[in-house]
Amino acid sequence: MKTGGWKARAAYGTLLLLALLKVTLVPNLQGAALYQPMKSAITSLGWVLAVYLAYWYSRKKRWEKATPEQRRDMERAETDERNQFLWGQAAYYSWQVMLFALAAAGVVMSMLDCTPGMLAVAVLFGVQVLSYFGKLRVLNRKF
């Protein structure tokens, strides 16, 4: 099973860099227009990386504790056709739910007259739709 070692190392390295930036660069920006956005961006990204590292670590521990038979099952689960069918169905359903959720968020942002919020929702909506149709086009050519 691929444990994604390089991704975890990259995430850890980035997290350390963000921590360094937060204590060195960001305090020097206090009073500047960039101070709050920079601080929020570093904090948010730091949390995302921390959650990803926690998830990676729990998978790594599970793999290390597994017996050879369990490891074989874990590896096989990733390529098992029934699992892939279920994941595909669940992913398509959640994509549709997310589209509706984003549309609803757009309406709320509009009601609150929040332009940055509306822009963010529009970007996310666009990414969802474009990535779907882009992938569909690639798959149509392949199959």
């Binding site: 099952d73 096989r76 689960a77 390529t79 098992d80 056709e81 029934r82 699992n83 069918f85």
Partner: peptide
């Protein structure tokens, strides 16, 4: 080369195997 759960689902008729 499938999981035991797939065999269980096949036997219960809840899942149809691919041609392969």
């Amino acid at each position: 080369d499938v999981t035991r759960q797939t065999i269980i689902s096949l036997e219960n008729g809840r899942y149809n195997a691919s041609l392969l």
